[in-house]
């Protein structure tokens, strides 16, 4: 059974009288442990697809199954619980809580689970170690570089032992060196932990090392290349 299965999924937005079809009847399956990139120009539907896969948004039509479960049958609390348990997020602008230290930021997702408070600190320290940021654990986001902040975001995504990490333009605000280092980390985690990584990007530096690449254009899948790693 595929981790994600999309059946004829569409997403339409209404901007006043204007109707924008961000995704048009997209069907695809994503297996657990994949490293996959959604590519395409701005407005192609990459972010919309990431939002749907991350259960942050609902399809206008079609079905989205996560581990065989129809996501549209869940209420908001159920979706929040499922996100917390199975999905990690890495955002373009890092999205760390500025008043918390790196360690506290990483603890956050576990604190949303009742009874995990004592475990949170230990697991957060381990996650920070996995991304090589133990020395920075007491620093706040403003004291970290862009690359370090994005690593903290990855640690935060991994702290729950999420099955899938969805990263929307994770290297957009990073220089080449930091982007390459981040990609190495993603590949390492994918290989060692079998964590599924879904990246929305048009960064050519990333695409070179991603085995499955799905191209989108005007909300439609125009190509799905497997074994594309260079």
């Amino acid at each position: 059974m595929a981790l994600f299965e999309l059946r004829q999924v569409s997403r339409t937005y209404h901007l006043g009288d204007l109707m924008v079809r961000a995704l048009k009847e997209v069907s695809l399956a994503i297996e657990a442990g994949e490293l996959l990139a959604f590519m395409g120009p701005s407005g192609s539907g990459k972010s919309t697809l990431c939002h749907l896969l991350g259960l942050l948004d609902n399809p206008t039509s079609g079905k989205l199954l996560l581990d065989g479960q129809d996501a549209s049958e869940l209420d908001e609390d159920g979706r929040a619980e499922l996100r917390n348990r199975k999905i990690g997020f890495v955002f373009q602008n890092f999205s760390l809580v500025p008043v918390l230290t790196a360690l506290e930021n990483v603890q956050l997702p576990l604190l949303f689970r009742p009874g995990h408070e004592s475990l949170a600190r230990k697991r957060a320290a381990e996650a920070l170690e996995a991304v090589g940021l133990t020395p920075c654990s007491r620093q706040r986001p403003s004291q970290l570089s862009g690359g370090q902040q994005q690593r903290v975001a990855i640690a935060r995504a991994l702290v729950t032992h999420a099955e899938v990490v969805i990263a929307d333009e994770p290297t957009a605000n990073l220089d080449s060196e930091a982007a390459e280092s981040l990609m190495d980390l993603i590949q390492k985690l994918n290989a060692e932990r079998k964590t599924t990584f879904l990246l929305a990007t048009h960064d050519a530096r990333l695409l070179r090392s991603i085995p499955r690449q799905i191209s989108l254009h005007d909300g439609e899948v125009v190509s799905d290349q497997k074994g594309a790693r260079s």
Binding site: E76, A80, R83, N84, S95, F112, T160
Partner: peptide, 16 residues
């Protein structure tokens, strides 16, 4: 609001 969005994405429920 963005921070709230992030927390919600990480699993915080509306009442949280």
């Amino acid at each position: 609001t963005r921070e709230i969005g992030t927390l919600r994405a990480l699993g915080l429920k509306p009442r949280g």
